[in-house]
Design a binder for these strands. Structure first.
Lengths: 248, 248
DNA sequence: CTTGACCCTCACGCCACGTGAGGCCCCATA
DNA sequence: TATGGGGCCTCACGTGGCGTGAGGGTCAAG
């Protein structure tokens, strides 16, 4: 009886579905056409549910159950990687949410820029090398989170003012046609570095260079910066490199 | 340009979709009909993406963003809670997958029973009271995970043999018509408890009793046990209670 | 003999998009 | 100045994992 089957915690419809797609076909039918699930069927159902809890697709589950040795490892590995990614993503978001909560308590709405500075690291894993450049070790961003957790409303206001001033400086430099490796742009880059260093996390010239790479390679950063002016991200990138690799 | 927008990490189609459902309408169109996203639009998009990561439906996101100041703090708190839940869930899944992979490498296909013992805890949260009985504190299952992580293939073989023997013992007791509160059944219950205690986690009589409650109240466990014989779960439950509350 | 709780089979709905098809637009190059 | 290649646009149907009826048969109890 589907009665017993439903006691496994799934809906009748789900069983119908599994039957329809051939994932779990009851081994018998009553003369009235009722589905009859044997103990073996129930065992299979249990395995299916276990894998479903791991959030594998039904097709993947079918393959695992059909050809355990070969397919299972692949699927499991893939799923493991997927879940790890999601986990680190969630960590970042948790930090972001905490920030947002505090900012909210203080009556400040975080600007997207700040959101990006703080947690816009979700794609970092796609750029593992740059990420290492940027964060040095994986916990650097937590340092940032710890520091900023203590900031008051006044602090945030000043941080934002500083950041805006820096951005405006870059905008003016671009509009004035100043070269990205000129002294003015380099000074702005250094100002940017010190801004990060002071308010967020220790930012060496080396780390700063890694960050610059991100600004042009990670579309999220690129989009953010280029919102200020077209070509902004590239300009800032060049200025940071110039600042990092040469003295004034 | 949608170009810039796509750089935020979402597909063009997604933007079209958000436009179509009115979640994110670009603030302008070029004369050729191209969507033009302003900085404000991008900010909104970023917020949307954050909430999307929280696995909220787009409709929910729309409502949240529509009702900004009033109860934003509530939403943030909820998001935070959900994120933390989600993360611990993912941790469990990761542990479970690692177990599966190990078991696989050792060439053992875990039986559903073992899978239940190892990581069949996902529904426990729906039965908070029993879960507390079973796990005492929330980290007990992690202890189980830690212990079992070190087991070799031989260990697993022995564990399985022990478990099977215990189950067979119960089956014979039932078939022989022995009462669940009789000495034989109680001995089997005690054997079961020691099995868990030895291989998985410290299992007091009290914890064992909580587990017994689960066996009859949680359909997943019930279905598992009753696969061995009808009425099995109830019998085991009664035997465990008898063993826990009286001496031989 | 009805009643109500099951079961069955279609078959369409849902969400968050993916994936073309068919057709403008725009810039660059031959 | 045609021509190509890469945007962009709007339909519009496909997908996964079911939910949710509609319309009808089955079965033990009253």
């Amino acid at each position: 009886m589907g009665e017993v089957a439903r006691l496994s915690g799934v809906s009748v419809r789900t069983l119908h579905h599994y039957d329809a797609i051939g994932l779990l076909t009851p081994s018998g039918r009553s003369e009235a056409g009722y589905r009859l699930y044997s103990a073996t069927d129930l065992a299979r159902l249990r395995r299916i549910l276990v894998y479903r809890e791991l959030e594998l697709g039904l097709e993947g589950i079918r393959q695992i159950l059909a050809d355990p040795d070969a397919r299972a490892a692949d699927h499991l590995r893939r799923q493991h990687r997927l879940l790890r990614d999601r986990r680190s993503r969630i960590d970042e978001l948790l930090g972001a949410i905490e920030h947002e909560m505090e900012a909210h308590e203080m009556g400040i709405a975080l600007t997207p820029e700040e959101q990006f500075e703080i947690f816009g690291t979700d794609r970092l894993e796609e750029h593992a090398a740059e990420a290492k450049e940027k964060w040095g070790d994986e916990d650097t961003w937590r340092e940032s989170a710890r520091r900023t957790a203590a900031y008051t409303k006044d602090d945030w206001t000043r941080i934002k003012a500083e950041a805006d001033a820096n951005i405006q400086g870059f905008v003016r430099a671009i509009e004035a046609g100043l070269p990205a490796d000129g002294p003015e742009a380099r000074a702005l880059a250094e100002e940017h570095r010190r801004h990060l260093d002071r308010w967020f996390y220790p930012c060496t010239l080396h780390a700063h260079r890694g960050l610059a790479a991100l600004y042009v390679s990670d579309p999220r950063y690129t989009a953010q910066w280029d919102a200020a002016a077209p070509g902004f991200s590239r300009y800032v990138h060049d200025a940071i490199l110039a600042n990092a690799s040469g003295s004034a």
